[in-house]
Design a protein around this nucleic acid. Sequence first.
DNA 1: CCAAACAATGCACTTCCATTGCAGGTTTAT
DNA 2: ATAAACCTGCAATGGAAGTGCATTGTTTGG
Lengths: 142, 142
Amino acid sequence: MRINYESNRKILEEKQVRPTAMRMLIFKFLAQKQMAVTLADIETAFEKSERTTIYRTIKTFEESGIVHLIEDGSGVAKYALCEAGCNCELDSDLHLHFHCETCKETQCLTETKIPHINLPPGFTATDASLVVKGTCDKCNKK
Amino acid sequence: MRINYESNRKILEEKQVRPTAMRMLIFKFLAQKQMAVTLADIETAFEKSERTTIYRTIKTFEESGIVHLIEDGSGVAKYALCEAGCNCELDSDLHLHFHCETCKETQCLTETKIPHINLPPGFTATDASLVVKGTCDKCNKK
DNA sequence: CCAAACAATGCACTTCCATTGCAGGTTTAT
DNA sequence: ATAAACCTGCAATGGAAGTGCATTGTTTGG
Ligand SMILES: [Mn+2]
Ligand SMILES: [Mn+2]
Ligand SMILES: [Zn+2]
Ligand SMILES: [Zn+2]
């Protein structure tokens, strides 16, 4: 696990985020989890730590392009790690997000890009977000 | 304006919603406004009325397919009238929503449909929502 | 028309989540 | 070693959504 720890640390440092203990733990948690998580999810996973610290950690991650925010319609904010090489602080993040109505989980489908949209005359776009709801692959197997 | 009032009343009745005074006023407000509105917007427009009444009116409208909910990423729920003939209580509403970062308004682009999305194997979709951010036609003219 | 039944409204209260201020504590740079 | 910059914990605040209940208004069957 040493290598993993080191590579995580490197990711934080590359993004100019100091790798404190709490940040490393939260980063690892996000990396292990395949799905988008809420602040409450993280809170549950680390009962010892403070809500505010988690909140500010995620904000820092978001501003540094380590995670991106996902609004899946559930009403609470969710976050997921950005892909290596993703520059979503600058550019926009054009993959779609899938919310499974069975298992209630939300995930990035990074392979599936948002198609180009022809807007009516006069409109110009800088960003887009696409959330698809339905049943995920795992839930469809059962 | 008599005719307008009557036709609004007819729309409510067709959707099995009793046309009370408050409901007629809120419906008219939504019909005049071209943009999606928040509960707070309605509250501001009708200072006399109660927040709860507005809340429950919009819920009723939503459940009856008179308005649809829009989550544009601002964190607060917005609502807009459904088009005539729209059946979004049953079917899903597949037009896109545009949020202007200049005037901060959100509107339905009912002519612009969400394109078909090819999901990875195993995933099945029942609904989709697409929000595009940028500058609207009016703001681009200035 | 009247009374019972039903539906809508108003008010108070609650919950949930996001956000901020401030007082330590820790790390970093000089 | 010291000061500055940064991080963390705790308390408090705020905004928005939702619920329970009493009151008022509307419908409808007799
Ligand atoms: Mn994503
Ligand atoms: Mn719409
Ligand atoms: Zn699922
Ligand atoms: Zn605009």
